[in-house]
């Protein structure tokens, strides 16, 4: 069955969302048109406004509509600690589940030479300036435990050491509540290499 051009366009446009195929796009379009036109207008306005106003925080590069994101502007946080992560989603994950009270630096990716992503693309020149400004006593490297994430962490740690600042890497190991038997070999060997005295 053919839809009218406008409906087809809406369905097609909804497919730009991750995880949305033709079937779910169609369901979304019909839901909005049949049951929730008000919601659709709100969504359209939010999208419009978000795309126009949201840029990057000048301090940590995370997505923000203000030049300094609320987290960086918060005076009660420890401005001597800087945690380097790959994405804004990582910031959220750390904020929700740890007691970390320092600041962040969001790379928006990792070094990936084969994709042409070098130090400049992930804002390391900006990190360099940030380190040069002083006041930071420890840099916590919380990039993903992938080969690229490790390479990124190593690259940054050299920048950090050159300034005489302490750099630490988050620990990798067996998930809590997991069973050793089912943990993959790489994680287990990493956990063994990183064992500590109790």
């Amino acid at each position: 069955m053919e839809f009218s051009p406008l409906i087809s366009r809406l369905v097609e446009d909804l497919r730009c969302l991750p995880g949305v195929g033709p079937k779910s796009a169609q369901r979304m379009a019909f839901h909005l048109l049949e049951h929730d036109r008000e919601g659709a207008v709100r969504l359209a306005r939010s999208l419009q406004e978000a795309v126009e106003k949201i840029g990057r925080c000048h301090h940590c590069r995370t997505l923000s509509e203000t030049a300094t994101c609320p987290l960086c502007a918060n005076a009660s946080r420890d401005h001597g600690l800087l945690c380097v992560v790959e994405s804004p989603a990582d910031v959220r994950a750390i904020e929700q589940s740890t007691a970390y009270r320092g600041l962040y630096f969001v790379l928006m990716g990792h070094l990936s030479p084969l994709d042409g992503i070098g130090p400049a693309e992930i804002g390391l020149d900006q990190l360099e300036t940030r380190l040069a400004d002083g006041g930071i006593t420890e840099v916590i490297l919380a990039t993903n435990p992938t080969v690229e994430g490790e390479a990124t962490a190593h690259y940054i740690s050299e920048m950090v050491h050159a300034r005489g600042i302490r750099s630490t890497r988050i620990a990798h190991g067996v998930p809590l509540g997991g069973e050793l038997e089912y943990v993959d070999g790489g994680t287990l060997s990493h956990a063994f290499a990183g064992r500590r005295e109790i």
Binding site: G118, A151, I156, E158
Partner: peptide, 17 residues
């Protein structure tokens, strides 16, 4: 150019030091 050569070069600050 080979992109990974960029990474073989140490970060600017480490080099200055």
């Amino acid at each position: 150019p080979l992109a990974s050569r960029q990474m073989l070069v140490r970060p600017a600050s480490a080099r200055n030091e």
